[in-house]
């Protein structure tokens, strides 16, 4: 009886000794690196796609002039996504690249400040511009971010057609101009 008890006690002590050696130790450590690289991105479009028409009305009675503006459109929006690893800001330029605006008329464009679902440090409107073939900045100081996609997101564009010089007006059926937008580094 005593013999068995001694054996049991001894085995227990040995097992405890073995287990003690193993307890609560840092055994080994390994590592790997993970990361994400956000690169230079500059992508822009005008939504919705398609042309706009600025239709003028005729003068209803002799002696009256045109009511200004002759026509206005607010259906288009600038959407963009951008980032710049060097920290440079970007701008959006606009100019007429095809066609010509009829004599006596001017076409103005304003990009409103950002609206809706994007995030970041987005562009600031430079106000109303009279469109010509020379590029003009319409949005400036774009740091990084995204405007949201589709009509109703980004910067709303307002086109206005106005009479500049009544005396220069001539009868014209239609004039088609192409307005070009460019996102570029400052």
């Amino acid at each position: 009886m005593n013999k068995n008890l001694n054996i049991i006690v001894f085995v227990c002590l040995m097992m405890v000794a073995v287990k003690e050696n193993l307890s609560a130790q840092l055994l080994v450590s390994q590592s790997k690196n993970i990361g994400v690289s956000i690169g230079d991105i500059a992508i822009m479009d005008i939504e919705p796609s398609g042309e706009i028409q600025l239709a003028t009305s005729s003068i209803s009675e002799a002696g009256l002039g045109f009511s200004q503006p002759l026509a206005e459109d607010q259906s288009k929006w600038i959407n963009y996504s951008c980032s710049d690893r060097s920290g440079n800001t970007k701008r959006i330029d606009v100019n007429v690249t095809a066609g010509s605006i009829p004599d006596g008329l001017i076409l103005k464009l304003t990009a409103a400040n950002y609206l809706r679902s994007g995030d970041g440090v987005l562009g600031i409107s430079t106000g109303e511009k009279v469109l010509t073939s020379a590029p003009q900045v319409i949005l400036d100081n774009i740091v990084r971010g995204y405007t949201g996609s589709g009509a109703g997101n980004g910067h709303r564009l307002t086109y206005t057609l106005e009479v500049d010089e009544f005396g220069d007006l001539s009868e014209s059926s239609a004039a088609v101009v192409t307005v070009h937008f460019t996102i570029t580094d400052n």
């Binding site: 840092l26 450590s29 980032s83 970041g120 990084r144």
Partner: peptide, 21 residues
């Protein structure tokens, strides 16, 4: 997000094995 500054973000993932007695 593009709202974050463009950069290379990197971290070391460290695994440690412990006795779990």
């Amino acid at each position: 997000s593009l709202a974050l500054p463009a950069d290379d973000y990197e971290t070391e993932i460290i695994y440690t094995m412990w006795d779990n007695e």
